[in-house]
Amino acid sequence: MSLTHEASRESANSTPARRPRNGRPPRRGAETRAGYAFLAPWLLGFITLTAGPMIASLYLSFTNFHPIRDWGWVGFDNFTRLFDDPRFMDSVQVTGLYAVVGTPIKLAAALGVAMLLNNRRRGQGTYRSLFYAPSLIGASVSIAIIWKAMFNDQGIVDEIGQFFGMKPGGWVGNPDMTLPMMILLAVWQFGAPMVIFLAGLKQIPNELYEAAEVDGAGPLRKFFRITLPMLSPVLFFNLVLETINSFQVFASAFIISGGKGGPANSTLFYTLYLYQRGFGQGQLGYAAAMAWLLVIVVGIITLIFFKTSKYWVHYGGETR
Rank of each mutant, 00 (worst) to 15 (best):
S2Y: 05
T4G: 03
E6P: 00
S8Q: 03
R9A: 10
E10F: 03
S11F: 00
T15C: 01
P16Y: 03
A17D: 13
A17H: 11
R18I: 05
R19Y: 02
G23W: 14
R27Y: 11
E31T: 03
G35I: 02
A37G: 01
L39F: 04
A40T: 09
P41N: 13
W42P: 02
L44A: 15
F46K: 10
F46A: 08
G52C: 13
I55M: 14
A56F: 07
A56T: 04
L58K: 11
Y59Q: 09
L60N: 07
F62A: 11
T63L: 12
T63P: 10
I68K: 04
I68S: 13
R69S: 03
W71V: 05
W71D: 01
N78S: 05
F83L: 08
F83M: 05
D84Q: 10
R87D: 04
M89R: 02
S91V: 11
V92A: 07
Y98C: 03
V100Q: 11
V101Q: 13
G102A: 12
I105V: 15
I105Q: 05
K106W: 01
L107F: 09
L107I: 06
A109E: 07
L117V: 06
N119E: 11
N119F: 01
R120W: 00
Q124A: 13
G125K: 15
R128V: 09
L130P: 09
A133V: 08
S135H: 04
A139N: 09
S142V: 14
I143D: 05
I146W: 14
F151S: 05
F151V: 11
D153H: 00
Q154N: 10
G155E: 01
D158P: 06
E159W: 13
E159V: 13
Q162I: 12
G165F: 09
M166H: 10
K167W: 09
P168S: 14
P168F: 05
L179T: 05
P180T: 04
M182I: 11
L184A: 15
G191H: 12
M194P: 08
M194A: 06
A199M: 10
L201S: 11
K202Q: 15
Q203M: 07
P205H: 03
Y209M: 12
D215R: 02
G218F: 02
G218A: 06
K222E: 01
K222P: 00
M230I: 07
P233M: 01
V234T: 15
F236I: 04
F237D: 11
L239Q: 11
T243N: 06
N245D: 13
A251C: 00
F254M: 08
I255L: 04
G258S: 08
G259C: 02
G261C: 01
G261H: 02
G262V: 00
G262Q: 08
S266K: 11
T267G: 03
F269S: 00
T271F: 00
L272P: 11
L274D: 04
Y275S: 02
Q276V: 01
R277F: 00
F279Y: 03
L284G: 05
L284V: 09
A288G: 03
A288S: 14
A288M: 07
M290C: 05
M290H: 09
M290G: 01
W292D: 14
L294R: 07
V298N: 12
I300W: 15
I301K: 07
T302Y: 14
K307Q: 13
K307F: 00
K307E: 08
T308C: 06
S309E: 10
K310A: 14
H314E: 07
Y315T: 12
G317P: 00
G317S: 07
E318K: 12
T319C: 05
